[in-house]
Design a protein around this nucleic acid. Sequence first.
DNA 1: CACGAGTGGTTTCAAATTGAAACTGCTTGA
DNA 2: TCAAGCAGTTTCAATTTGAAACCACTCGTG
Lengths: 128, 128
Amino acid sequence: MIGDRWSLLIIRDAFDGIRRFSELQRNLGLAKNILASRLRELVAQGILTMGPATDGSAYHEYTLTAKGRELFAVIVALRTWGETHLFEGDEPRSALLDVKNELPVRLQVTNAAGEPISSDDAFVRKVS
Amino acid sequence: MIGDRWSLLIIRDAFDGIRRFSELQRNLGLAKNILASRLRELVAQGILTMGPATDGSAYHEYTLTAKGRELFAVIVALRTWGETHLFEGDEPRSALLDVKNELPVRLQVTNAAGEPISSDDAFVRKVS
DNA sequence: CACGAGTGGTTTCAAATTGAAACTGCTTGA
DNA sequence: TCAAGCAGTTTCAATTTGAAACCACTCGTG
């Protein structure tokens, strides 16, 4: 799933409201066969569904399932990191804003009490 | 960076304290040439650094830079999603816990006021 | 209602990437 | 001292990618 170049970008676009095959292809600039293959995989994994278009046309569109929408935090995290590290100086960038007040969205790793923590404050435990 | 199968897994292992080449290779089960190539790339991108080993041996080890450590939220998000969706039933899984109280770590997308939001509550704005 | 453009793919084929295995040279511990 | 481990590199076959051509269907326009 995360194991390739395009799947997460497709999911990101899906969160941005992109639903159509051709729109995805133009947006991402990937080959149509690769896009078709990735969409097939994402549908098979239950992250996207293919349904009839909502605009009345005979085409169909891809939308996120509940399982797919749960990737929101992943996309926000990657977007945040990318915005601060993947640009040099004056390149075009974008921000994720709250619909209501248009202030930037934030992402926090917290403990059970809701206090922000860093990687030093956490450890992994194997669970059988 | 996110554009391949192994880089994020290497970074995840780095957060788990894996620092040595051979340890990464055993853990991830990838070919040594691919691992060497990915480590080179990650170092070149300033996500990892290669330094002398801290255990006194003449070998060296890879550690996360500040830029790399800022990927913590991404790794936590992916880990959380994977734990709830990538296992069926009784397979081995792991949890990320707070060092102090051993309670699970959580991840939240919030607005500026700190209130949790979903993908419907946010939109992307292009900024020049 | 014909037709040119757009949609949503599949097929084909060359080029790039991956992965397994063998090989190398240095280090470590017994 | 010497076998095992570390940290790679090289080689080569197999898989994956990406560009381009092709195809069938649908839409809007005149």
